[in-house]
Nucleic acid binder design. Structure first.
Length: 591
RNA sequence: GGUCGCAUAGCUCAGCUGGAUAGAGCACCUGCCUUCUAAGCAGGCGGUCCUAGGUUCGAAUCCUAGUGCGAUCACCA
């Protein structure tokens, strides 16, 4: 039972004994630091049941608690706030109970139903950029948070491997590629991306020519020869033309190989992959099924629609008049395919930008109408765009921040700062490079994950990302500092009895902060919000640094105090590690 | 135009299901390295919580209307 639950019972009992009234619930909050006390009961809500002056009621309840409850050491009432002082022994015993848990904050798997978390889901015609980085970090972290909260999780993505945009880079490669192939230095996704840009350049040039020869802009855009060729190629692909399919497979594989390098660099992984080229047919089957059961209807031209006007939305097309699949068709197929493949999945999380809010609203509704009971457990993890000072990123125009470049730059910055500080002179070069990457990535990941997913991020490459204050490196630094103490302390030999410890105020604050962690994990899981974890960790670390600067750990007056402080520091570092683990951020032993 | 999201210090952001005098970091200004890592600590400066109403003992938080920014409303994905 938590402290709050214990106190709640006693407050209720007190109200009953003092006023013969039943209290539904008790409102608690942390005591503000300018007042004495550890936890505060808000008296105002009790006035609904108990009539009287809140200050007087607070006084009476406080006295009752002091008399009846062992762990209550004192109290004071300010206006309608009853501040309760808790005895040190409570915190010490609590600390004793968690100090050796290396998985502190995590819950063992307690749910039979699994959650499938989709993220990344790139097109296969260009490299990953900053926008994908936000997606990937969010999705990965939410998956890890869900795991830590006791859920079974499958990480997956849907690869958008078919369509006209793929044909564009294929065509440009055919025309201008000279059988170029990817190399170690020049990854396949970059190569294919270049041809996607090349296509766009040619297309624009042809449009200009056509306009010059007297065509309207609209005609020119529709009839540019290279576009017609691309459309031809798409038809050939759908018809299964051997050469086109072979080229498609080859180029897609280049891209996949390139992506894998980037994912590995970022430090994310997937349990299973889905390809739209595999799932759109299943989607079509279920559209036919829904047509029979009346979920969908057919218009005169043969296109198939879902009427959502009763739900406050519009009609939505699910199949074109020529019978080909649209985006929605594929997504219906993909969702159903996943449940077929993994029957233990009871819900899914889609990590996709907020420009698709409407699409997912519709998708979830359609799946419900099709009668799938798991459809009620679908969640669109929607996040805001990452914008540059110059505006939106556009792959075709080359105004993107490339994911690989970005990671490299972050590591370089970490290297510059590290060299200035010069603390690592005895590390060999490989160790140093590894560390720079850990710190650089830590900075990037924390920067992105600490903000509410719903908010847009304005990313200024020139301003770059901070390494001080509320940042990843600040937290990593604190971790490394604790490790340094632990190395010197040889903590295995330390023994102490909590009864012998006099709790310093900074120590108590730290234990209080540690106490919150399991609940933070659960909240973060419910709200799909890594930001909660990031901000919690920052608060914990700030609290520790204050302790560290004000209290000597290895130089404590007594062996008991020293042992206790070492153990406390150890648990703080373990908690930092556990928190950062679910954010996908590594912690260094030194820095 | 309909719908959805966002709006808090010069900048970047916290602020949980309403609770005490709205909190951090960056930037700027003071102090603190011969004792555990100064990527740190202690302190200062800085706010009409977009506006106007409403609900309430109490509103940055809830409701309504409006303003600004963004997204979306395709036989694109």
């Amino acid at each position: 039972m938590t402290l709050q639950e214990t106190l709640e019972l006693h407050v209720k009992a007190g109200i009953k004994a003092l006023f013969q009234s039943e209290l539904e619930s008790v409102e608690f909050q942390a005591t503000r630091k300018e007042f004495a006390g550890d936890i505060t009961v808000v008296v105002f809500p009790m006035l609904r049941v108990v009539k009287g002056n809140p200050a007087v009621i607070g006084e009476q309840v406080g006295q009752y608690l002091l008399d009846q409850v062992e762990l209550v050491k004192g109290f004071n009432v300010v206006k309608g706030f009853l501040n309760i002082e808790i005895s040190d022994s409570y915190y010490l015993e609590f600390f004793q109970s968690i100090k050796d848990k290396t998985n502190y904050g995590y819950v063992d798997q307690k749910d039979d139903k699994a959650v499938m978390v989709e993220y990344s889901s790139p097109n296969t015609n260009k490299p990953l950029h900053l926008g994908h980085v936000r997606n990937v970090l969010l999705g990965y972290s939410v998956a890890e948070i869900l795991k830590a909260s006791g859920k079974k999780v499958y990480k997956t993505q849907i690869i958008n491997d078919r369509g006209i945009h793929i044909c564009k880079s294929m065509l440009a490669y055919q025309k201008f590629g000279n059988n170029e192939t990817p190399t170690q230095e020049f990854k396949g996704d970059k190569l294919v991306g270049n041809y996607y840009v090349k296509f766009d350049q040619e297309y624009k040039a042809e449009i200009a020519d056509l306009i010059a020869s007297g065509k309207t802009e609209e005609e020119a855009k529709k009839n540019a020869p290279i576009l017609l060729e691309a459309q031809e190629m798409l038809r050939n692909w759908e018809a299964g033309d051997n050469d086109v399919v072979a080229l498609w497979k080859k180029m897609n594989q280049w891209v996949y190989d390139g992506f894998e390098v980037t994912y590995k660099n970022i430090g994310v992984d997937f349990d299973t992959y889905y390809y739209e080229s595999d799932t759109y047919l299943l989607g079509k089957e279920f559209v036919a099924e829904g047509l029979k059961t009346g979920v969908f209807f057919k218009k005169e031209d043969g296109s198939v629609w879902c009427d959502l006007t009763e739900d406050g939305l519009d009609e939505k097309i699910v199949l074109r008049s020529d019978g080909t699949a649209v985006y929605m068709t594929q997504d219906i197929g993909t969702a159903i395919q996943r449940i077929k493949d993994y029957p233990d999945v009871g819900g899914m999380v889609y990590t996709v930008g907020n420009e698709q809010d409407y699409h997912f609203k519709v998708l979830f509704l359609i799946l419900k109408k099709l009668g799938f009971d798991w459809a009620k457990n679908l969640f669109h993890l929607s996040y805001g765009m990452v914008d540059l000072p110059s505006g939106k990123m556009k792959s075709r125009e080359g105004t993107v921040v490339d994911a690989d470049d970005l990671i490299k730059e972050m590591a370089d910055t970490a290297e510059d700062i590290s060299k200035d500080l010069g603390k690592l002179d005895d590390y060999d070069e490989a160790e140093k490079q590894e560390l720079y990457k850990t710190i650089g990535l830590g900075a990037l990941k924390y920067y992105i994950l600490k903000v509410d997913p719903k908010k847009r991020i304005l990313f200024d490459p020139k301003e770059s990302i901070d390494f001080q204050g509320n940042t990843g490196p600040f937290i990593q630094y604190t971790y490394a500092r604790i490790q340094s103490i632990l190395r010197k302390a040889d903590s295995n030999s330390y023994q102490f009895d909590t009864k012998d410890v006099m709790l310093h105020d900074k120590e108590k604050q730290l234990i209080k902060q540690l106490e919150l962690f399991p609940e933070i994990i659960q909240n973060a899981a419910e709200q799909h919000s890594p930001a909660l974890i990031a901000n919690y960790t920052y608060d914990l670390v700030k609290e520790f640094n204050s302790f560290y600067q004000n209290v000597s750990i290895l130089g404590a007056d007594t062996e008991i105090e020293k042992s206790f402080r070492v153990e406390l520091s150890k648990l703080v570092s373990q908690t930092i590690k556990n928190a950062f683990q679910v954010l996908g951020i590594q912690v260094p032993e030194r820095m």
